[in-house]
Design a protein around this nucleic acid. Sequence first.
DNA 1: TTGTACGCGTTATCAA
DNA 2: TTGATAACGCGTACAA
Lengths: 339, 339
Amino acid sequence: MKPITLKDIAHELNISVTTVSKALKGYSDVSRVTKKAVKKMAKKLNYTPNSVAVNLRTQETKTIGVIIPAIVHHFFSNVIDGIIKEAKKQGYLVITLQSNEKLEFEKKQLKLLQQHRVDGILISLSNETYQFDHINAILQKNIPLVMFDKIGKLVNCSKILIDDKQAAYEAVSYLIDKGYKKIAHFRGALKPQNSIDRFLGYKKALQDNGIEYDQSLVYICDNNDDFNNGYKYAKKMFEQHKNVDAVFTVTDVVAYGILKYCNENNIKIPDDIAIFGFSNWFMSSIVTPKISSVIQPSFEMGKKATKLLIKEIKNKKSKTPVTFKKVVLPTSLAIREST
Amino acid sequence: MKPITLKDIAHELNISVTTVSKALKGYSDVSRVTKKAVKKMAKKLNYTPNSVAVNLRTQETKTIGVIIPAIVHHFFSNVIDGIIKEAKKQGYLVITLQSNEKLEFEKKQLKLLQQHRVDGILISLSNETYQFDHINAILQKNIPLVMFDKIGKLVNCSKILIDDKQAAYEAVSYLIDKGYKKIAHFRGALKPQNSIDRFLGYKKALQDNGIEYDQSLVYICDNNDDFNNGYKYAKKMFEQHKNVDAVFTVTDVVAYGILKYCNENNIKIPDDIAIFGFSNWFMSSIVTPKISSVIQPSFEMGKKATKLLIKEIKNKKSKTPVTFKKVVLPTSLAIREST
DNA sequence: TTGTACGCGTTATCAA
DNA sequence: TTGATAACGCGTACAA
């Protein structure tokens, strides 16, 4: 049972395909009578326009492609939520692809999206991506592309992100203002920019407040098991340092690991040690004690990135000259029981 | 800068479009020489085939559509992960749409997917969906559709799900075997099938083990704030019943609420009360104490559903007669410190 | 007001 | 071994 086409309707009514097409799109040069008849017949046959044909004809697919490292992630699933909702509002569909933190996959997915002629692409780079030929190739083809969260600083395109350094700076400054003096940092892997920036924010906050930076207070959580990293390094930290009074972590899950260790070893939070996380996972307001955290506007980021992208798509269509934007979304601090 | 087409390559080499097409697809009736030349030129011009045109020609889009209630959800994001990965493996792209638990949206999204001529559809129904005209319309058009998790029992199509009743039965039976006697149930809303089935499993386990069912031990968590429901009804339960020794919850987040209440009120888990959750959220192995939970194979469900769907797509193409399958995935129990 | 003709980029058929 | 032609379904400039 093949889908109904304009031809079927035309045939049924003994008129031309053109007239049917025009009638359905409400053109003014079709008589009311035929318009009505066409619409009625379309409904009767349960006609659904074939987007593929429209796409080919109009040279746009009303589809945007998204590449993220992984969808099973509090932050990214929220971003995707924002993307899908904004796209829907503007009549676009969303194809989601994962790079799984592999540059190789990222390249493949990018090619796939190109083949499918998506109207634009949203991408958050993999941790492996330090070279941008594949991205630049897209841009050179004049395909709208917006980077979010994990961006490439050297790439010339629109970007939307948070100021990780500043956010970390604020969190650590808050700790210092609260009177904490010996503040450890459980940082992420060495290469990702987010991880670096949060570390730099931590460091700067110390320095600006006259606290000497102590490298031995920085623990690197560089495998993918954040929770166990937190637990493991908490143990190590308490063995190595007697008087640490606060920890700032690169992400909340690391903080949960620390929390676990503290609970098990009767270390009181925040009395013995304060904990400040990053990303404000849902769980942070649920665990005992509730964990303070940096609020990243994930949903908002998805929405804004999509808005920006669709704007660029439209600019391209209307041949408006491109101007790339860099949007830095504000973060804020969720202060809870742990600090 | 328009994308390169076959025509461009043909023009460049002074041969026909047909030959270029054949050469690129490795047809045997093209000379080695021209094949080489064509491929070289394609690479040089950075040719990417236009899927839209291919789609129109071949009448398939190599795309599947997915409709879920919400993507920001531990279970569903895992399902989507499974879907995307399996789809990718088989050369399909995935368009994700959300119903936000609204029947109205579900209908709209279904129509959208139809317009875009996806090759097949995966759907997990909204909580509002008790009437299936929109689904049946799709099936009547012979568009492959597979339901997962939240299915409509009355719809005649392939389904993939878990046996909620059985899973709940096993969890509660485990509690009983462990010696717990007065077991409460924090159930979900009244209408969703999952919620009903889990409740029925709870009830049956009691009855099969000679424990009288006590309706006052069942609390209904029917707004969307599971965590606070858990907290709120934990308080209520402890006020109303002195000697409850275990709780089985419809989902882990409710259990976290109970946990919170217990921690705050110095109620020992599992000594004073055991807690058994459902869905095995990531956090359940992290909180203190770790919460026992029913393991739902979410990733697996996505993968299997996609496999099934693509098989149906292929059957349709090869005109193999359709046979609908109902796959029940096994669940298991993650036994932890809370029981 | 209606319809003819063409093109979007590709593939399949058939003839050369 | 190659290519002309038609077709997928639709939209639009133009002619009638």
